[in-house]
């Protein structure tokens, strides 16, 4: 392990010396490290980018995708961070890249990774069972204040549980949280009336919504979703009220889909990948991917991305601190 890392460093160092003038161009296969298992949201995110890069030949070197999703994605980030200065390893994740080191004792720090770009932003919707008699989010909150309601979500101390904690904090509700392995499980548990609500991403609950097994109460966003299409009967994403107007004073809560390089890479390397990803984000295929998975278009890189990461990291850390979930 150590050996291969040091070899990688040597190669990276040699490259840095050999080509300082010319703009960076990868000269060997680029590894896309997916920090989630096959089939998950992050996996589809990375593989869609891989397919678009191949179709438009945005990069000369081939792309190899590997899944390293254990320990909530920490496996992939630790792996990527271990290749310090290697310009051929990209990690694909969400905000878990900078959240994991805050809430769990993982052997890497957020500073061990270099942010490249954020390409999409996945929204959060408050869902209840289709047969539930809540008409609005305010009804739900009123019931939740009495206690005994359960929200199920993906992973522990991750985005879903943080949002649950924020709802409790903002409204004075006493909702408990039950962690499952994935959002898909939480969706089915809700459809089967085993939990009272979930805060799944739109794509995770779409199938159940279409069958009227679950229904959305509000979206955690400052404005309504922009999609016009009627995806479930006569309703579409654009018809879901924002949570703020529906009775939960949380303005904006979303999950960026992010791409990272190991720490210690040259600025022109970061620039190169940021450019490639920007070109990806401008293709019709990307627009289709966003529409299919009901995510919002975002493209952030450079300083913009850094400050967004800081703002989001600080906001979430505050919740973690309040709940006593800080690892250190």
């Amino acid at each position: 392990m150590k050996k291969s890392v040091s070899i990688a460093c040597m190669i990276a160092a040699a490259l840095g010396v050999a080509a300082p003038a010319a703009a960076f161009e990868p000269n060997r296969p680029v590894e896309f490290v997916v920090t989630a298992g096959p089939g998950g949201g992050t996996d589809i995110f990375a593989r869609t980018i891989q397919a678009i890069i191949a179709k438009y030949e945005l990069m000369k070197s081939p792309v190899v995708v590997t899944n390293k999703g254990s320990a909530g994605g920490a496996e992939g980030f630790v792996y990527t961070a271990g290749y310090k200065g290697d310009a051929h390893k990209l990690a694909f994740g969400t905000n878990n890249a900078y959240l994991l080191p805050v809430r769990a004792k993982v052997p890497y720090k957020a500073e061990d990774l270099t942010p490249v770009a954020a390409l999409a932003s996945d929204e959060f919707v408050l869902w209840v069972n289709g047969k539930a008699d809540y008409a609005t989010a305010a009804d739900f909150v009123a019931k939740a204040k009495e206690g005994g309601l359960k929200i199920g979500g993906s992973q522990s101390k991750d985005v879903d549980q943080i949002l649950t904690s924020m709802i409790n904090d903002a409204t004075g509700a006493k909702i408990s949280y039950i962690p499952f392995k994935s959002g898909g499980e939480a969706a089915v548990q809700l459809a089967g009336e085993h939990i009272d609500a979930n805060v799944n991403n739109p794509s995770e609950n779409l199938g159940q919504w279409q069958a009227d097994m679950v229904k959305p109460l509000c979206v955690f966003k400052s404005v309504k979703l922009s999609s016009e299409a009627k995806v479930a009967g006569d309703k579409g994403w654009g018809d879901i009220p924002t949570c703020k107007e529906a009775g939960i004073p949380i303005d904006n809560y979303s999950m960026p889909r992010t791409v990272w390089l190991p720490g210690g890479v040259e600025p022109d390397v970061v620039q190169f990948y940021a450019d490639v990803l920007r070109k990806v984000s401008e293709t019709p295929e990307w627009a289709k991917y966003l529409a299919d998975t009901s995510q919002s278009p975002v493209y952030l890189s450079g300083e913009e991305l850094k400050s967004a990461v800081e703002v989001d990291g600080a906001a979430v850390s505050e919740v973690l601190k309040r709940e006593g979930w800080l690892a250190n």
């Binding site: 291969s4 070899i7 190669i11 060997r28 296969p29 590894e31 190899v64």
Partner: peptide
């Protein structure tokens, strides 16, 4: 299958990474 196996300095010598 495009699954990389562990490679070392010998492959790098031949320009295979």
């Amino acid at each position: 299958f495009q699954v990389p196996l562990l490679k070392g300095p010998v492959e790098a010598w031949f320009g295979i990474y």
